[in-house]
Design a binder for these strands. Structure first.
Lengths: 240, 240
DNA sequence: GCTATACTGTTGTATATACAATAGCAAAGA
DNA sequence: TCTTTGCTATTGTATATACAACAGTATAGC
C-alpha cells in the first residue's frame, strides 16, 4: 500500500467508526505530514482524494472537516419526503399510524439478516403535504442495530433522518414499481377510487448489516419522481 | 483561471467537439508541459482530474486516451431496455408502429426549442421481452440535430443507441410517475384490463440543444426499476 | 468599547527533481 | 522465425520548496 493510501485509510477509519462525527476537524496537511513522516504534498493528496470522494470538506484558511452525511446523499437523491415538501415551500406533517414489534416473517428475516420470528420494529407513517396525504411509509427496522427506534417521535423528524443520525448509512438499494393500492393503502391515502401508485422499495445498510427496509407508496396523481444527470463534467464557469 | 484549468479546458474542448473521438490518444504529461510551458506536475494534475471525472483513461507505460462514452453512462444508469433484456438472457425484439414527421405542438416546441408547428420526428416503438410487450417508447426527436432519424432501422438497434452514436449526449433528465394506461397504450401492451403503469419521461441534451424527448411506458406487473448506490467510498481491497 | 492592523495557521497553486513500474517496440541472438 | 533482451516513453509515487489566498485571532490604537 502506498503512503497516501495509508493516510486515507487512517482517516476513513476514524470517520466510519464514528470517532470523528460530522463537522469534526481533521488533522491539517502539515500535522499529517509530521505524524506519518511524509511530505506535505503526500498528506495533501490523501485529504484531497477524500474531499473528491465527498467524505471531508476543505476550506482554505480554515481547515478540513468531516463532511455532513446529507451532502453525500444529495448526490444521488436518497429521497427525504419532508425535505422535498419543505423545499416546495409547502407544509409537511406526519402521522404515526403504527409502531410495533412484530416477528420477522421468513422473507423479511432474510432481508434484515435476523433469525426468523425474532422481533423487528414495524412502523407505518403517513406523510402529508399541505394536509393532503402524499406518502405512506411502511418500514421494518433491525432492532439489533437500532434498539431505540420505537421510542422516537416521528411527527417532527422522519425515520430516515433519525436513522441517518444513529447509524452511518453506507449503502442503499432502490426498486421502483407501479401498482394498484389495496383497501388499507387507499384509506391511509384518502383515495376514494383506486388509482395507480408509485411504490419505492428501499433497503439501507450500515457497515454492520441491513438497517432498514421501507416501502414508500405515493398516489400517482400527487407525485412525480424527478432526476437530472450530466454525463460529461460541465464546463467550468468562466469567472471573470 | 489557473494553469491546470486552462489545460483541462483545452482537452475538454477537443473531446466535446468530437475532434478527439473515443480512444483517441491524448497528449502526454511531458508534451502538455512543453506546449503550455508549465511543469509536468501541473500538466499531470489536469490529466488526473479529467481521469477522475471519467473523460479520459490512463494506463501507466501506455498513455492517456479519450474514454469511451459507455463507461460514463454506466455510472448513472441511463436505461437501455434492449441491453437490460439481453442481460437477463432473454430475447429482445422491437416493432416500429409509428414513424412520421408531425408539427410540433406548443409544449413540445418549447421542450425541443424549435418553432411551433415546425416538423419534428415522432416514433412509437414497442419493445418485447420473449415476445411479451414490456415497453412502449414514444419519442419526439429534434430534426435539426438528427435529420436522418426517420431512415434508421430500429428493429436491430434502439433509437437510444442510435442517438448516442450520432450526437454526443451530455445531459439527461428523468421523471417517473405511475399512471393508468389509455386505450391505445393498452392495445400496444396487450393488456386486457387496465393496470398501473410506470412511465418514465426522459429528455436528453447534447451541447447544441435538446435532442429528444421520450415517454417510456411499462406495465407495472412486468417491470421494476432497480438501483443501487453507495454513499461512502468502499474501503480499498487489501491487495496482498 | 470598537476598529484597524498584524500575525499565524491552513489550504491552493506551481515548480523542479528523483525514482519506480509498466507497455510497447526495436534490436540482438538463437 | 521466434525469443530474449534492453531501451524508451509514459504514468505513478514521493519529496522539498516557494508563494498566494483566505479565516480566525490577537494586538495595538483610538
Amino acid at each position: 500500500m502506498t503512503k497516501y493510501e495509508s493516510i486515507k485509510e487512517h482517516i476513513y477509519q476514524k470517520i466510519e467508526s464514528g470517532e470523528w462525527p460530522e463537522y469534526h476537524s481533521v488533522s491539517s496537511e502539515n500535522a499529517l505530514a509530521n505524524q506519518f513522516h511524509v511530505s506535505r504534498m503526500t498528506a495533501r493528496r490523501a485529504l484531497q482524494e477524500l474531499c473528491d470522494e465527498g467524505l471531508v470538506t476543505r476550506t482554505r484558511g480554515s481547515g478540513t472537516f468531516v463532511a455532513p452525511l446529507k451532502s453525500q446523499s444529495a448526490l444521488l437523491t436518497i429521497r427525504n419526503i419532508a425535505d422535498e415538501i419543505r423545499m416546495r415551500q409547502h407544509q409537511h406533517s406526519a402521522r404515526v399510524v403504527k409502531m410495533e414489534k412484530v416477528p420477522a416473517y421468513p422473507a423479511l428475516a432474510t432481508f434484515l439478516h435476523v433469525p426468523i420470528d425474532s422481533d423487528v420494529w414495524h412502523s407505518v407513517i403517513v406523510h402529508y403535504e399541505n394536509g393532503q396525504p402524499v406518502q405512506v411509509e411502511d418500514r421494518y427496522v433491525n432492532p439489533r442495530l437500532v434498539p431505540d427506534y420505537g421510542d422516537q417521535d416521528f411527527s417532527e423528524h422522519t425515520p430516515h433522518e433519525y436513522l441517518c443520525e444513529v447509524t452511518p448509512l453506507t449503502e442503499a438499494s432502490h426498486q421502483i414499481e407501479a401498482m394498484a393500492p389495496d383497501q388499507q393503502l387507499m384509506k391511509w391515502l384518502q383515495l376514494n377510487e383506486p388509482e395507480p401508485c408509485l411504490q419505492i422499495h428501499r433497503r439501507t445498510w450500515c457497515r454492520d448489516g441491513v438497517v432498514s427496509q421501507a416501502t414508500l407508496t405515493h398516489p400517482g396523481s400527487r407525485f412525480r419522481l424527478g432526476g437530472h444527470m450530466t454525463f460529461r463534467a460541465p464546463r467550468k464557469k468562466v469567472e471573470e
